[in-house]
């Protein structure tokens, strides 16, 4: 069994290309179905941040991005996608928190059974990604300390 697993793993790795965004059905801000592959239709870069209502550093990171967003958008064209990983218990709370924190310029999505989170191999939050206009993940970071957000805009500005 172990041998089969090892062969399979290396077999898959050998045909693997740069990580992209898997297609998963989650929910938009209204509760309507949202397929994550539709994020790629608009060919602009994205910051994708996974957060939850009980993850304080996640909320600090999104607030920090929200505070500087008008300045950043003067420097580059991109979108911010905030993916709440709260389950059904706190989905309504997450929607209210997004409103109460003024995250009006984000694309707010709700991954209520953590399917998108698993598909993106996110095991701890905060986890942030920068995705280029072709849908390729070019940067990612686990955890947040104040100041980490500066790296995001630098990565986006360096994209072609």
């Amino acid at each position: 069994m172990k041998r089969i697993l090892i062969v399979l793993t290396f077999g898959l790795m050998s045909v693997a290309a740069m990580a992209q965004i898997p297609s998963v059905n989650i929910e938009d801000h209204k509760g309507d179905a949202f397929n994550t592959s539709s994020l790629l239709e608009e060919k602009t870069p994205m910051i994708i941040s996974f957060w939850s209502t009980i993850c304080k550093p996640c909320i600090r990171e999104l607030d920090a991005i929200n505070d500087v967003l008008p300045d950043w958008l003067d420097e580059a064209d991109f979108r911010v996608v905030a993916v709440s990983t709260d389950d059904s218990r706190f989905t309504t709370k997450a929607r209210s928190l997004a409103e109460g924190h003024g995250w009006y310029d984000f694309i707010n999505l709700y991954d209520t059974n953590q399917e998108f989170m698993r598909a993106m191999s996110v095991s701890v939050t905060p986890q942030v990604f920068v995705v280029d206009g072709d849908g390729k993940i070019v940067y990612s970071h686990t955890g947040y300390v104040p100041g980490n957000e500066e790296e995001l805009i630098e990565v986006i500005k360096n994209l072609k």
Partner: peptide, 10 residues
């Protein structure tokens, strides 16, 4: 499209 692998370890 070309395939890609994702994984995690903890």
């Amino acid at each position: 499209a070309k395939g890609y692998l994702k994984g995690s370890f903890e």
